[in-house]
């Protein structure tokens, strides 16, 4: 009996250490492209085009200098932040009103919510050509021009991102509002505050962590978005993803500056995942687990 227990614990121990080996290998695989991107961004052209690839090299900041100098990458970061902040602001305002309504009153017995959610499944490519034509024509009107809604203007991209962000944001905030106890709002109403005050003074503050998470999701959706940005902007309103793809030139791909630009584009999102992991897990797994 004792030997059997001894044997099985040895076996368990071996299996347990194998588990950790497997996890370590997996982490290495998942991190390799990110590590390689950062490494490449600090390599000189000769090291980038070395065969076989070099692991140890003398780092250089030349790629970053080029990306922010000649390639003017800083300007595209500003553009991206403008679009992301603009779209996120609209998404949070419009989305929180709707999400609150869905969570509290369920208007139309869920049909309106279902309708909004189905637009989440819509392939962006299906609307990109009509949107291209709509914004081209809007840009020629005086109102559209004032609101910067034309092609290669930030307004058009803000609207496009808002439409594609809104369903997910409503879905996310809807669950956070459901967690706010109804009784607190009713207490405020009994104390004589109006419904809209109860919404702003009670529901919004209590759901604010969820609203913040939604805002961050929305911001990074815009930050990473490529298809709309590529079709709707040319140069003046170009965003970072389009700019990163712009390092493919007639003379070939400028791997070093591209890696530097990609690193700048990716680092904020990595920090966001590491710092806010608990909320992200909740945001992503919602709906899958009751």
């Amino acid at each position: 009996m004792t030997t059997r227990i001894g044997a099985s614990t040895t076996r368990t121990r071996v299996l347990e250490s194998l588990r950790y080996v497997a996890i370590a290998v997996l982490i290495a695989i998942f991190l390799l492209p990110i590590v390689w991107m950062i490494a490449t961004s600090f390599k000189q052209p000769t090291d980038i085009l070395a065969r076989p690839p070099v692991i140890f090299f003398t780092p250089t900041f030349e790629n970053y200098r080029f990306a922010f100098g000649e390639a003017d990458f800083g300007r595209f970061i500003v553009n991206t932040v403008v679009v992301a902040l603009g779209s996120t602001t609209i998404v949070v305002i419009v989305g929180s009103l709707a999400a609150y309504s869905f969570a509290r009153f369920n208007p139309g017995n869920g049909n309106f919510m279902f309708f909004i959610l189905t637009t989440r499944m819509m392939p962006a490519i299906a609307v990109i050509i009509p949107l291209f034509v709509i914004f081209r024509d809007l840009g020629k009107t005086s109102i559209g021009d004032t609101l910067l809604l034309g092609l290669d203007q930030p307004g058009a991209l803000i609207v496009a991102h808002t439409v594609f962000n809104l369903p997910f944001a409503i879905w996310l905030m809807h669950s956070f509002f459901q967690d706010v106890p109804r009784s607190l709002e009713q207490a405020a109403l009994v104390d004589g505050s109006s419904r809209i005050k109860a919404f702003f003074r009670v529901a919004i503050p209590l759901a604010s962590p969820g609203i913040a998470v939604t805002a961050i999701f929305s911001f990074f959706f815009s930050w990473n978005e490529f298809l709309f940005a590529n079709v709707l902007t040319r140069d003046a309103a170009k965003t970072i993803t389009v700019a990163v793809s712009g390092f493919q030139t007639q003379q070939g791909i400028l791997w070093g500056p591209m890696a530097a630009a990609a690193t700048v584009a990716v680092i904020p999102t990595l920090i966001f995942v590491l710092v806010l992991q608990r909320f992200i897990v909740r945001g992503l797994t919602m709906g899958a687990i009751k």
Binding site: L26, L31, I34, M37, N224, F226, I240, V244, A265, T269
Partner: peptide
């Protein structure tokens, strides 16, 4: 560490994969 790839721009890292 394992969930890091979720957040990165598929376009930016896709170009790195191309390399």
């Amino acid at each position: 560490l394992i969930i890091l790839p979720i957040a990165v721009s598929p376009l930016a890292v896709g170009l790195i994969w191309r390399y």
